[in-house]
């Protein structure tokens, strides 16, 4: 989900809440603003949700940073012919993006049970592999003329290509972090939710879900969307742009 979509959904939810307070009659489905403020107080006293939200955001960013670093090192170690413009890797790259997050989360739980650290490692490796495929796809889309020009400046064509890969992928760090932050958020939360991890924000969502209290569910989701929105905005703001084919 893009940050724009998240902002639109948050705005719709806010409109519904305001409407529920003043326009829509009292009902069991739409919480009023007063109920929401009570929900915030309850959630704070029972779960300390703000701390957990920050902790989970930190975990997501740590996964992203570690995975990106790992992916960049991996790409630099890969043979150069992987970046040539043939179709050998295209299907694998596509498959990597097609595995639903829920299935990935279920597999992590099945293999590692409630081991939080193992989950963190697996999510990091999984994200790193997705970034590697993403980078290969991107590097293969760069125009050949970059390799042609820069290889004539260097003594060794292979050395020039390695250097060019570094120069092309480093400025795209923010792009990669942004492109993958939503999938990391979703996998982390689904795994935490299924593990009933009380140290994570997933535990807060689980608490609200178990009570099935509408204001609590609303509040927990709203705070989550706000932090995802701002995380995305921050990562997008760091972006400096990547090279694309020139339009003639």
């Amino acid at each position: 989900m893009s940050t724009k979509k998240t902002a639109v959904i948050s705005l719709i939810l806010l409109t519904i809440v305001i409407a529920a307070e003043f326009v829509i009659p009292t009902n069991p489905y739409l919480p009023t603003a007063t109920e929401l403020s009570e929900g915030v107080k309850l959630l704070h006293s029972e779960t300390g949700f703000l701390f957990k939200l920050i902790a989970t955001a930190g975990e997501v960013l740590a996964v992203l940073l570690l995975a990106t670093g790992l992916a960049f090192v991996t790409v630099l170690l890969l043979p150069l012919k992987l970046f040539s413009q043939n179709d050998a890797l295209r299907s694998h790259g596509f498959a990597g993006y097609m595995v639903p997050h829920f299935i990935i989360a279920l597999l992590i739980i099945t293999w590692f049970g409630n081991d939080g650290f193992a989950g963190f490692v697996v999510i990091t490796l999984l994200t790193a592999s997705q970034i590697v495929l993403f980078l290969i796809k991107r590097l293969r889309s760069y125009p050949m003329r970059y390799i042609e020009f820069f290889s004539t400046l260097s003594d060794s064509s292979e050395k020039a290509q390695k250097k060019l890969i570094q120069k092309l992928i480093l400025p795209s760090i923010a792009e990669d972090l942004y492109a993958h932050h939503l999938s990391v958020w979703s996998i982390t939360l689904i795994v935490g939710f299924l593990q009933n991890n009380n140290d994570s924000y997933a535990g807060v969502l689980r608490y609200a879900y178990d009570l099935w209290d509408t204001p609590l569910v609303f509040v927990s989701v709203m705070f989550l969307m706000v932090i995802i929105y701002f995380t995305g905005l921050g990562l997008k703001g760091l972006s400096v742009g990547v090279i694309t084919e020139d339009v003639q």
Binding site: P143, R145, Y146, E148, F149, F150, T152, L153, S154, D155, A160, K163, L164, K167, L168, P171, V240, G241, V242, I243, D246, Q248
Partner: peptide, 29 residues
């Protein structure tokens, strides 16, 4: 040294003029 300039430019759009020249020079050590 022979340098080939392709029919379309190959500069980095995320870098300034000076940074682009620095990048190009780095390939020639």
């Amino acid at each position: 040294k022979i340098v080939y300039i392709p029919s379309l430019p190959a500069t980095f759009n995320f870098a300034t003029v000076e940074q682009n020249i620095e990048h190009i020079l780095s390939f020639a050590e």
